[in-house]
């Protein structure tokens, strides 16, 4: 992939205060060819989001300093106009209030903990393939991980 400016096309940010979850998802996504950045809480995650402009954010809900919900809203306020991002929220229980909130948000997916790394990878793959197919963002096939 060297020589082509991939920008943030394949960049994924994972935010979780559990190191094992970070480690497993990082490995799974890196093996599939994505560039992975990790953060350990909401504040850290937001900082890296602003600095790195990932196309996908995978985050826990309950975290110290700033929870996933608040972080998502802050990210929405700080995102680039032409740069939508997919947000995958990992949670052990989806309560009703969270569900109602989530339904009104764009590009937000839930996955229940313990997460299936395979499922997360599928979601990310699907998102990138719809990005590729949509006209607004041109992404050469060569950039899509196998």
């Amino acid at each position: 992939m060297k020589g082509i400016d991939t920008g943030n096309m394949l960049k994924v940010l994972i935010v979780d205060d559990e190191p094992y979850v970070l480690r497993v998802l990082k490995m799974k996504l890196e093996n599939a060819g994505y560039e992975v950045i990790t953060a350990v809480n909401g504040v850290d995650g937001l900082e890296k989001f602003v600095g790195e402009r990932p196309a996908v954010v995978i985050s826990d809900v309950r975290m110290p300093l700033m929870d996933g919900q608040e972080m998502y809203q802050m990210m929405q306020e700080r995102k680039d106009e032409n740069n939508p991002f997919l947000f995958i929220m990992m949670t052990s229980t989806i309560d009703k209030a969270l569900k109602i909130w989530a339904e009104q948000m764009e590009n937000l997916f839930f996955t229940e903990k313990p997460v299936s790394p395979r499922n997360v990878l599928n979601l990310v793959n699907e998102y990138f393939s719809t990005l590729r197919n949509s006209n607004s963002i041109a992404c050469p096939d060569a950039l899509i991980p196998k």
């Binding site: 497993v24 490995m27 229940e112 313990p114 997460v115 299936s116 790394p117 395979r118 499922n119």
Partner: peptide, 8 residues
């Protein structure tokens, strides 16, 4: 990762 898959 495999264990997560199984648990899930």
């Amino acid at each position: 990762s495999d264990k997560y898959e199984e648990l899930n």
